[in-house]
């Protein structure tokens, strides 16, 4: 080989090596993400395992439907808005959804398969509550449907982001966004974990006559823990979201009560009724006026927006440790 060709050859080899490295970096998803059948397969078709079994996705989906508010919120962080072709009614409603302004013009789907088929989606990601009959009908017409559960604990939330990124063929963006969510969560917890004494917090809502409390294994409970509080309901043995009574509230003895309930559903009236209730007068939260209405969609949606809820609550619990307001939102896919 003539010597004068050597620098060009070396440069070509370096470029090839860098390209290969870049490709490898793009593809590096953790092996432990539940639902990804073969993490090494970054081509198409690819297989994922949802709650409804193993599903093959033939090609990178350009037209996506994610049929729950939480899934829509994650999807909009992973893919450009125009790839999400339709959403459920709740996602368009600012009372329940953190992304309502982003989906104003999108068509609405329901659990009726026809409304979904009409949008010609390449893939559908649904929650566990999506009707099995509808999944069967959509699968029969050849649309891949992946049924997944969104979880409230931080690690499972990261896994959900990576899993959905894999389904959409957006691994790189999923890794980037998961890192953003992880960093935001970790930096919050680094401060809240050091705060003492930790207050006993109770998340209460009232819909007509029923008082609801969020115990262990609830999204509100996860938010309370991340914000540096002790979930008083979890401590009293309540699991999930349960009804309780005013007497139950007294027994749980909270130092702070939060009301993650939309104002349109009477959150302020409920707060006033708690503060005015004579029987609660000796409950520390009521005695000290520590009863707060909080933005419900930051607490109850199963998505990374729970971290924003924890940031909100941390500012209520530890105002000195968080003098600055919380970041408004999260990054979106370009």
């Amino acid at each position: 080989m003539p010597l004068r060709h050597t620098p060009a050859l070396i440069a070509a080899l370096v470029i090839l090596l860098m390209a290969a490295l870049a490709a490898c970096q793009q593809a590096t998803l953790p092996d432990s993400v539940p639902g990804i059948v073969d993490p090494a397969n970054l081509g198409w078709p690819r297989e994922v395992e949802g709650l409804n079994g193993v599903v093959s996705i033939p090609a990178k989906p350009e037209r996506i439907i994610t049929a729950s508010v939480g899934h829509d919120e994650v999807a909009l962080a992973l893919v450009p808005g125009d790839r999400l072709v339709a959403v459920g009614g709740a996602t368009k409603d600012g009372t329940f959804s953190n992304v309502a302004p982003l989906v104003e013009d999108k068509p609405v789907i329901t659990s009726d398969p026809e409304t979904i088929i009409a949008q010609s989606p390449d893939v559908i990601v649904t929650s566990p509550f999506f009707p099995p009959d509808a999944i069967e009908a959509l699968t029969r017409v050849g649309i891949p449907v992946v049924q997944t559960a969104l979880e409230h604990d931080p690690e499972a939330r990261i896994d959900s982001i990576l899993f959905m990124g894999y389904i959409f063929g957006e691994e790189e963006r999923a890794l980037e966004f998961a890192e953003e969510v992880r960093q935001r969560y970790d930096s919050l917890v680094a401060v809240t974990a050091a705060q003492e004494p930790k207050p006993r917090v109770l998340a209460l809502t009232q819909y007509s006559d029923q008082i609801w409390v969020a115990g262990g294994n609830s999204s509100e409970g996860g938010v309370i823990t991340a914000a540096g509080g002790i979930n008083a309901a979890e401590e009293a043995g309540v699991e999930g979201n349960q009804t309780t009574s005013l007497e139950g509230v007294i027994a749980m003895d909270p130092e702070v009560i939060i009301i993650p309930q939309p104002a349109a559903f009477g959150a302020d009236e409920f707060r006033q009724s708690l503060l005015a209730n004579e029987a609660l007068a000796e409950t520390p939260a009521v005695k000290n006026g520590a009863v707060h209405v909080v933005e419900s969609k930051h607490f109850t949606t199963l998505s990374h927006w729970n971290t924003r809820g924890a940031e909100d609550l941390a500012r209520l619990l530890w105002p000195d440790a968080f003098p600055e307001p919380a970041d408004a939102g999260f990054s979106l896919a370009e």
Binding site: V213, G215, G237, V238, Q242, T244, S245, E247, G248, M252
Partner: peptide
């Protein structure tokens, strides 16, 4: 109101 108190 007592079987799973403080839930109901």
């Amino acid at each position: 109101r007592t079987i799973i108190q403080p839930a109901e």
